[in-house]
Design a protein around this nucleic acid. Structure first.
Lengths: 396, 396
DNA sequence: ATGAAAGCGCTAACAC
DNA sequence: GTGTTAGCGCTTTCAT
């Protein structure tokens, strides 16, 4: 090892060599370092084995095969195979400044929706030759910031951020440095930096679809259940929910409502617990609703569980509509009516946007893509039981 | 930029400088590169701003603050803050050969169990100052190998692999290079390389607990349902299941069985679908069981769904026991009886093992840690309906 | 068609 | 207590 200074390819002028021969402390240190790296095979060794220079090996590695004789290529290929050579990513990245890696920050892979989305995004990234790094923010802005900065330090320049925070101020420094950011499930906000692209479903439309489905079934007392009140999509979905009520001539202010849980911060795994508690409280009251729209499927499943605790039958006594269409929605008893997000398409779009913005010369106005949500009707929603919560019952 | 050759800190002997002045093509190239990296602030710039040398900044960065005057430290801190300096990880890693990052390869984060485990492992890693990189293998050995090698190339030397493949041969080259590997949910196999540590629950015990719980409730016709037959823990859990039957004097060969689906490869998300199909086929037969043990909760949930399709009531007509205790087990209707895996503790252990093996001088025999599974009884398991599947019914 | 050399940003041994 | 220096493995320009 460490023969580069004495063999045929000195990497420094002779003047250096006189001062720091192969037995100098520096050389010893280099040797130790190399031991520590566990026999990493370098491009130099491959070059030597193939009887060519490192640059030629590098050319092969980077697909510039037209620059060498077929015989040379074969020799190098053989050397690579024999030595089991794998290029060192850190060195490569340090040199080029690029990485074929995207970052994904989700609230929590403990929530099946985010797990499913992560899978889709990984597939989409892989299909474009990118790798994916996955991080959990647990909806903590500080943790979100830390991850984004850490990914940046790892050379990741394109990220998908799943957040419902109204402001991206905590990420401003990284965005200014040139981060290609796509926010998911969070429509663009007025204060967002111009370069940010956002991809989400049309949340107000989703809320509208959910509520009007229930109204069409005959429900007149509807509640909207969510945990955090400050989330961007909560507001948007609730807005759509309200429009549907208004369009049907129902006064939103008359609807039973649940205060929410903004005091107690909670993660996505606890979403179900939120739904359960909300159901307990909302359905113990006299003015209880006949139907519920939940902010997402996990919360909806919690609501169903809570209703069962009260001996109310979902899809009979009470209708429940969720959001997301996670795998478990169809598995549940009763299967859950929900608003489906087209996650595969959204994932593909997110990757395309990032790659496009990396290729684009520079700061181009970020756009906001809204996809159409889809109502999936299953057994958790049905007409209200006769005499309960209908117009007649209310006027009685 | 690129002033280092002309200012007070030349990095190469003068002879170099005569040949490649600041306007040489090399210098121009360097400038372009630096533009491309989007204004990366370097340690040199911090050093200049603070009026010290890069090494002093480096010393501060690496916690060797005792080597400098408090005033110097303050000046450097100020410079770092003002310039918004963040060390370049690639450079750091290239230099030290180390990374404070662990890798996790799971079958699929689409399965809530793996999502939950990933969360736990991330917490455990974070608590020890490590980051976590998450990858989905979709139970594809080739993809598993690719990820392991890619992580290795990224400088990751410690990984947790969740696999149920009987052989680790596809990872042998990387293991030989010094990978610190912990397999999760896959007990050590005779052919495993000696350095591999394995962490899992005692799967035979889990299978035993599940089956004997059902037997104690009075069931005498039990089926075991799983998808892939080749998985290591499938075999182990089934073995435990059989012991419980034998201990109760029940002949395993008399039990209704389902052929499994080894022909069709499937991911963890489809586990539920497997359960559903298995239930359809198994419960359409005359010799149908009164109770089922499923390989995991997702499959168990699918079984429940399939039973419902046949108008059989879970927890009444048929008992179902799952494995894992995912969040949704308790949310389901009826709540699912299951074998809990202590994932938080297992995650903590996995991280400890990896860190220990990185610190340890070298190849030490890998060990196998088996944790105790816990039976969680919920409403999906109950005594068999009178006259069905009991000894009497069988002899009738 | 191939090679020599420079340097990406950082760390740490050693000199002062 | 602080500075100087070499070099981690790679890519790419320019020279041949």
């Amino acid at each position: 090892m460490h023969r580069s200074a004495t063999d045929g390819t000195p990497r420094h002028p002779p003047v250096e060599e006189d001062r720091y021969g192969p037995s100098s402390p520096a050389a010893q240190y280099a040797r130790t370092l190399r031991m520590g790296t566990m026999g990493q095979v370098t491009i130099q060794q491959v070059a030597r084995a193939a009887g060519v220079s490192p640059s030629t090996v590098s050319n092969l590695l980077n697909g510039r095969i037209e620059r060498m004789l077929p015989a040379t290529k074969d020799r190098i290929d053989a050397a690579i195979a024999e030595l089991g050579y794998r290029p060192n990513r850190a060195a490569r990245q340090l040199r080029t400044g690029r990485t074929r890696t995207l970052g994904l920050v989700v609230p929590s892979v403990g929530n099946p929706f985010w797990g499913a989305f992560a899978r889709e995004l990984e597939s989409a990234a892989l299909a474009r030759g990118y790798n994916l790094l996955l991080c959990n923010s647990e909806r903590d802005p500080e943790r979100e910031r830390r991850y984004v900065e850490e990914l940046w330090e790892d050379g990741v320049r394109g990220m998908v951020l799943c957040t419902s925070l109204p402001s991206l101020a905590h990420l401003a420094p990284t965005i200014e440095r040139g981060l290609h950011l796509v926010t998911f499930d969070r429509p663009a906000q007025p204060d967002d930096p111009a370069s940010v692209v956002s991809i989400s479903i049309n949340n107000p439309m989703g809320g509208y679809l959910a509520a009007s489905h229930l109204i069409e079934l005959g429900h007149r007392r509807l509640a909207f259940i969510s945990g955090s009140l400050r989330s961007v999509n909560r507001t948007a979905r609730y807005r759509g929910f309200c429009s549907a009520l208004e369009a049907a001539g129902i006064d939103v202010d008359d609807m039973p409502s649940w205060p929410g849980m903004d005091a107690v911060p909670f993660g996505d795994v606890e979403a179900a617990e939120v739904g359960r508690r909300a159901a307990h409280e909302l359905f113990s009251r006299a003015d209880r609703p006949t139907a519920v729209v939940a902010i997402n499927d996990m919360t909806a499943l919690g609501v169903c569980r809570g209703l069962r605790d009260l001996d109310l039958r979902v899809g009979k006594d009470v209708s429940v509509v969720g959001f997301d269409d996670i795998v478990l929605a169809d598995l549940y008893d009763p299967p859950l009516t929900t608003i489906r997000q087209p996650i595969a398409e959204m994932a593909r779009l997110a990757v395309e946007e990032i790659i496009a913005s990396e290729t684009r010369s520079d700061t181009e106005a970020g756009r906001s893509v809204l996809l159409r949500p889809e109502l999936v009707v299953r057994a958790s929603s049905a007409p209200p039981p006769a005499g309960a919560g209908t117009d007649a019952a209310i006027s009685a």
